[in-house]
Amino acid sequence: MTVHETPSGEIVPLVRISNVWKKRGANVVLKGVNLVAHQGTVVCLLGPSGAGKSTLLRCINAIELPDRGMIHLDGVAIGCRQEGDKFIRLSEREVSRQRADIGMVFQNFNLFPHMSVLENIIDAPMRVRGEGRAAATQRAHDLLGRVGLADKAKAYPRHLSGGQQQRIAIARALAMQPKLMLFDEPTSALDPHLTDEVLDVMKGLAGAGMTMIVVTHEVAFARQVGDVAAIMADGVIIEAGPARDVLTRPQDPRTRKFLAKSLQKQQE
């Protein structure tokens, strides 16, 4: 993995979120969020529901567009371009090219039900990247092996368990060979006994050096796998730092309250 540096020797983060604001109707969802994710690190976003974690994540691949502020991936602005002092929205067509480099995994898997597992995985590499069927299929089988579902290539998503579907969804995102992976509460829709199989795949991915931004309620996972933990509440990041510090010795009383609550839930 390459680490990008400016001529002055400063390390450029893979993702830089600068002062992002987002309104939905009269409701201000994001209130000036700043966050960076460096190459090869895992950033976990935690916080009570309604804090704006998912919205922030969805702004990173321009599925939603911020009203103010900028998000850069590898130094390139996402979703808009600068002309003088004006920022102009890119067309969906232009944005789609940027999204191809950003993998995303959803809470509800969102596999395409009318396609087999293999078709789900090879469609975008072939259609978006223009890869040949043989190469795309070869990599799909490799990825299926990696998520432990080598025998499911011909199955349809409906016939798989939630945990299996989510692992296929991860394989589908990885097939695009993304620079960055976004996870939006990947285990929240799963039965408790199925979450581990998904978290294990994510741990493997982090170990292989993938840059990941993960919205999650799994504090234990964040503590174990996360390099950085950022706690959000009411549209702002109230605390961010090395995951072990933030999640074991939180400074902000709201973080302490949130962590105590989720610990309580886990013990129930």
Binding site: I63, S96, D101, N110, F112, A124, A173
Partner: peptide, 13 residues
């Protein structure tokens, strides 16, 4: 969610 997943994979509109 289907549209979002498709967009996220880089499909054009």
């Amino acid at each position: 969610g289907q549209t979002e997943a498709s967009k996220a994979l880089g499909h054009r509109p």
